[in-house]
């Protein structure tokens, strides 16, 4: 067992995405691409190899016209905590290229350590990880807009959503300069949260009762951090991955689409966390 640094109090950054508000406009995807220097190719219609840290999925209730319903579901990295930081991907990485931070609850990805074995991609139940099959190439001139805060990735490494960790670093530095002991809620927000024109994404510290995300989610630590909000659910919650991205929906079929249920099972049942 690795030595875990003691931080007092530890933070647990997480998200609540209101699917009732999400319109599927895709602003979160492009805000992320633009913030994180995500490359693009001429043909991006093969979605298996198209890199998009934030992906918006379209769900339908499967009913025929005119009872059809649609719901959009934005999927960043779920930053699973698992049990004591054993995220599915962290557990399998042979290079310690990805790690769970006990300080922030963010699952990191260090590109220069990654050697491209892609075990993590196999382990991730959310398809949140992407492999660089090609070196990134920007059309002539477009390199000018690349941000120095996030290094462009080379061919052969895996990448994924970092909860805009560079923004946390900047906010932390600023907080220290201002003699603040903690990073204020508004000072650290992810690019997708900031951009969402519908205000569907709320981001913050799930451990901090003053943060909006905590007030919405009200996680229950005795039940594997299951939300106490009846509208809330997590994706594949019953795998015990203990993700930190919560979804809110007032529609039962949407909440049910978040996991695999047998016909007789009620939505929202969570089994114990696996070790």
């Amino acid at each position: 067992m690795k030595h875990e640094q003691q931080h007092n109090p530890p933070m647990k950054y997480g998200m609540a995405i209101d699917l009732d508000k999400c319109t599927g406009c895709g602003a979160c995807m492009v805000a992320c691409m633009s913030e994180n220097n995500i490359p693009f190719r001429e043909d991006e219609s093969d979605k298996l190899v198209s890199i998009s840290w934030m992906s918006v999925f379209k769900l339908t209730n499967g009913k025929a016209f005119p009872d059809t319903e649609i719901c959009y579901l934005p999927r960043p990295c779920q930053h699973c905590e698992g049990h004591g930081g054993h995220s599915p991907c962290v557990s399998v990485c042979p290079a310690t290229a990805t790690d769970y931070s006990a300080e922030t609850g963010i699952v990191s990805q260090i590109y220069t350590r990654c050697f491209g074995c892609r075990y993590c991609m196999g382990a991730c139940p959310y398809h949140a990880r992407y492999f660089n099959w090609w070196d990134p190439v920007w059309p002539e001139g477009m390199e000018k807009y690349l941000s120095p805060n996030v290094s462009p990735r080379m061919r052969g490494v895996v990448e994924k959503c970092s909860f805009c960790f560079h923004r946390y670093q900047l906010a932390k530095n600023k907080a220290y300069l201002n003699d603040e002991r903690t990073v204020p809620e508004a000072a650290y927000q992810t690019a997708c949260t900031q951009a969402c024109p519908a205000g569907a994404i709320v981001f913050g510290d799930l451990n901090n009762p003053a943060h909006q995300v905590h007030q919405i989610v009200k996680p229950d630590p005795r039940k594997g951090n299951k939300s106490r909000n009846p509208r809330a659910f997590r994706l594949l919650e019953r795998l015990g991955t203990n993700p930190k991205v919560y979804y809110l929906s007032s529609r039962e079929w949407v909440r049910r689409a978040g996991d695999n249920y047998l016909a007789h099972e009620k939505t929202g049942q969570v089994s114990n966390v696996h070790h």
């Binding site: 406009c25 805000a31 633009s34 001139g141 477009m142 024109p197």
Partner: peptide
């Protein structure tokens, strides 16, 4: 707030 086209503006500015 901002929309997806507004966010992509720099690709228009610097694009080929």
């Amino acid at each position: 707030g901002i929309c997806i086209l507004g966010l992509s503006g720099l690709q228009l500015l610097y694009g080929p």
